[in-house]
Design a binder for these strands. Structure first.
Lengths: 219, 219
DNA sequence: CTAACCAATAATGTATACAAAGAAAGGTGA
DNA sequence: TCACCTTTCTTTGTATACATTATTGGTTAG
């Protein structure tokens, strides 16, 4: 594995996981030493992170991890809405119904996972990731898939901020099931509409939990 | 200006303009010498082009300019459709009506440009670019704007392949005018629908002209 | 005391030298 | 004659040294 890829992946994970919080200054020599690579591959990694929108130049001070404001979340969903609606639509047109029927069955049973503690919730998240993968595989448009992948980077960051409660997870599972069933039934319009509904609820929940947290912090 | 930016911009232009046609091998030492920069900034430029999807690694042979097949065009429109519909929708919600009213007036008068030779057609293309800019400015979502910019890189490449005839340009101007008027009237749904129609026609024309050309080449 | 300028320093930006990995070509053996 | 192996050469990947630029802190003048 190339040193630049390793540096990119490490920094990416650390930014997404919050180990490198927004505002962190990423000096080249410092990070190169920390990650055990030289400045050349590290610069390449930073360049890619900049294109991803995860770091940005700060006048004279090098690169810093970008902030994630409430406005950013709203703006991100203005991209997420059309992209994922289109993804669901195409998956409904082209996906293998049997494959998605299997996923639908798992979502129908997901209450059990959600109610069974940390491990179950982790398994539920993995189920969602498998669905995303299945949709991407069904799409076939490399351009759309790339756009979705770039989007999911930012979504992963937001997910950390707006931690989901059990009730929201249950509701999300039901919403997602509608999407998957629409794909199974090859109903593109329904798949798109169900995605629209799901994302609207998801955004509402994210904004509420973050606003609540902000209030908690003040109180 | 940084040498890496200069190299990136130059290579980008050359790829989009067709001076570096698909399949061209971009060896680092060779391109570095040609552009008058060292390998380090050149590699940075190539890395960005790779993220843009304009070049891709070829096993052992370094990077080559990516191909643009008919399938690619269809796939690109599967991304373009949702992105530009959303862009038009948001522009209709947030754009300054007076600004777009001015653009609408110019589109109403665009027949004159299209019919007045090379210069006029060039001016017509610039008008389209100004509309794109105005829409991007109105959107406010940095994520969506970035996705649109990445998309437009690939569209500029395709535009070279499917050269527009006068009749198509006239039709496109009428279609575009509907979009702009919807934005002026703050009608997001109409703006989105008009965009849908316009892009459907645009795709149809692109595919037809390219298929015709392919036949010409054979004949 | 404040503001401006200069110097020093620390950062990024660039070039080049070196290493390693892969491919192509030529030779040798079966 | 064909296939495989070895060697060489070209290519990318990495490290480091050098240049350049911007910022910060200090000093001096008003």
């Amino acid at each position: 594995m190339r040193a630049s890829d390793k540096a990119y992946q490490t920094l990416l994970d650390e930014i997404v996981e919050g180990a490198l919080p927004p505002g962190t200054v990423l000096a080249e020599v410092e990070q190169a030493a920390r990650l055990g690579v030289s400045r050349t591959p590290l610069r390449e990694a930073l360049g890619h992170l900049r294109k991803d929108g995860l770091v940005e130049p700060l006048a004279g001070r090098g690169l810093i991890v970008t902030a994630v404001s409430i406005d950013d979340i709203v703006e991100l969903y203005e991209l997420r809405q059309p992209l994922e609606q289109q993804a669901a639509r195409l998956a409904a047109q082209r996906g293998n119904p049997q494959l998605f029927a299997q996923l639908a069955a798992e979502f129908r049973d997901s209450d059990r996972l959600i109610s069974s503690g940390e491990e179950g919730i982790k398994a539920y998240y993995q189920l969602n990731e498998r669905l995303d993968r299945a949709i991407e595989d069904a799409i076939s448009s490399a351009y759309l898939v790339n756009a979705l992948k770039a989007l999911h980077l930012h979504l992963a960051r937001i997910r950390r901020l707006s931690r989901q409660n059990i009730d929201r997870l249950r509701a999300a599972a039901v919403e997602t099931l509608v999407i998957v069933e629409a794909i199974v039934n090859r109903d593109p319009d329904l798949a798109a509409s169900a995605t629209h509904v799901h994302l609207q609820q998801s955004l509402r929940n994210s904004l509420e939990t973050i606003r609540t947290r902000a209030v908690d912090r003040v109180a």
